[in-house]
Amino acid sequence: MDKAETKIVKAKATRVAYGETLLELGKRRPDIVVLDADLSGSTNTGKFGKAFPERFFNIGISEQDMMGTAAGLSLTGKLPFASTFAIFATGRAWEQIRQTICYSNLNVKIVATHGGITVGEDGASHQAIEDLALMRVLPNMTIIVPADAIETERVIEVIAEEYGPTYVRLGRVKVPVIMPEDYRFKTGKAYIFHIGKDVNIVACGIMVDKALRASEILKGEGLDAGVINMSTIKPVDEEAIISAAKISRAMVTAEEHSIIGGLGGAVSEVLSEKYPVPVRKIGIRDCFGCSGDPEGLLKLYGLTEEDIIRAVKEAVRMKNFNI
């Protein structure tokens, strides 16, 4: 079914959807506690904090302590959501997440905002382009990158019901709402907009919308490029990747993250072992970001629908050349 024409009715930042969902969940789940490291206005956990001050803990600018405190709360049966910017959550507190949360397999939900370069003007220090790689190497960790506000809401609701360490990456800027109203998120299950005969684009986060636009343009040029929203980065939906690769025998990945170790890495790992086909990766090419407006940065770092279109054509060429 071709859902690429889903009408864009609105745009909303995923972090805003997070704050609203957390507030709603807080009303019916008294076991939920929320921790933040002095960014509750930006991460939107402040809404929960205002409504439930006794269950909200601002730990100050100390991400390492925040992760440990969240771990301790989970040991008393609470369901902690710990939030800050993606780079500080995964970079500053990586070893705390490894030793205390993942090794002990604790039910801590790390929901980080400001992932990727669309953080914009704050520049490289605040742009997490390696968070998915950092989290992927940790045993027991589940990693999810919602594509829009609807998916964010469903993801937060679902992970609140499931046990285990989880990392959710959200963004700063408004993104178009692309998922259907009746969408139901399932951890580890990709959402397939449609499977293409010529190539399939596996995307996550803000790049799903761009993949859909690229696919639409390519259709006009006679190329059938499928789009898969791989919101769960770990455990990645191997079946969806392999079955798509079997049809198109050429793949493109698209993520607002380094091409090393993120979605592109995960897809390549699956395909190289189980169904080798050419893979072209759209992502940050092993460099730091810089200050600028988000749209300008996406152009500068090659993360636009035009870049995806180019990658699709390269992937198709590689496939044909191999034949």
Binding site: V33, Q64, M66, M67, G72, L75, T76, K78, Y103, S104
Partner: peptide, 22 residues
């Protein structure tokens, strides 16, 4: 809680103490 990498236990103890108080 699993420990070994130093410096992390007191944070966990804090979290438990907060949870117990709640």
């Amino acid at each position: 809680i699993s420990t070994g990498s130093l410096g992390q236990g007191l944070s966990v103890a804090n979290g438990i103490a907060l949870g117990l108080r709640l």
